[in-house]
């Protein structure tokens, strides 16, 4: 086995493991982002306005 092939083997080994580590890390980041920044349904404008009015009334009372 030539030194070049040995180096190629080493790079391939580290490379394959490395790429899985990278992708596993990205996977965990996606899970974390999805957990801590979840989708929230945007309220329709009418609902938002009526809620604001109710809140204002409560404050006045």
């Amino acid at each position: 086995m030539t030194p070049t092939v040995q180096t190629a083997l080493l790079i391939a080994g580290i490379g394959i493991v490395g790429i899985f580590i990278f992708m596993a890390l990205f996977y965990l980041m996606i899970i974390a982002l999805d957990k801590y920044l979840p989708y929230q349904e945007e309220k329709p404008a009418e609902v938002y306005l009526s809620e604001t009015e109710e809140e204002e009334e409560e404050i006045e009372e």
Partner: peptide
Amino acid sequence: NPSLLLFGAAAQLGIFLTMMLAALLGYDI
């Protein structure tokens, strides 16, 4: 489908096998 991200790693196998084959054929690293 975040778990499918891992296929983005598995399907790069050809890169590394080809690199080894090219090295076997006499190309420098």
